[in-house]
Amino acid sequence: MYRLDEERPEDWWEVEALYDLCFAPGREALSSYRLRDGVAPVAGLSLCARDDGTLGGAIRFWPVRVGPHPALLLGPVAVHPIRQGEGLGALLIREGVGRAAALGWERVMLVGDQPYYGRFGFARLADVVMPPPTNPDRVLGLALTPGAWDGVSGEVTKFGAD
């Protein structure tokens, strides 16, 4: 049975090791990481899934801007290879998105596979531009309030950048 807890500062290295295990070397060279540099993840939304104290999965959310509009950038989300196929990724995404809505966030975006994330309601954001090199077909969004992505377009920038 998994227990979801907010990520604590002392979890950081263990979560980073999980991300290193689950993603290709050089993951931090991706454009999405430039949007996270020097910005803290959103409090209350970075979650760890543990089973008897063992880290099985983790998710983080970061504040960004799409044009002048605030949004959450979901990612990374990772599940330990021996725990994949148990629904843990779905649990982390649903719980994280639910908490984001409860905190008043209106929109979430990510860079990912539409066939996977589409089952959570994410759809392609045709008018949202991630920093290069990002495949525009992989830029997906989810409205947490009705119409939250309507009329939202432009470049994704680091939160707090003017």
Rank of each mutant, 00 (worst) to 15 (best):
V77H: 05
P41K: 01
Y19S: 02
G141C: 08
V156Y: 00
C22S: 08
P136R: 07
G85Q: 13
E95N: 10
L55P: 13
N135W: 02
D52G: 13
S31R: 09
C22N: 04
A17E: 15
G38V: 11
I59Q: 00
R65Q: 14
P81R: 06
P136D: 07
A126P: 07
L55Y: 12
G57D: 04
A40L: 13
A58N: 08
E86T: 14
S32M: 13
L55C: 14
M130S: 13
C22I: 01
G85H: 11
P133Y: 09
D127M: 08
D137S: 14
G98S: 11
E16H: 10
R65E: 12
L125Q: 15
R138E: 14
G112T: 07
A102G: 13
N135F: 03
F120M: 08
L144S: 06
R83Y: 01
L110E: 05
A24G: 07
Y19H: 14
G67A: 00
S153P: 01
A17N: 11
Y33F: 15
T157W: 00
R99H: 08
L125W: 04
A29F: 06
P70F: 03
R138T: 15
L55N: 13
F23R: 08
Y116K: 09
V79P: 00
V156M: 01
R138W: 10
G147P: 05
G141L: 04
V79K: 01
L74C: 10
R34M: 11
T157I: 09
H69Y: 10
R36E: 09
W105L: 12
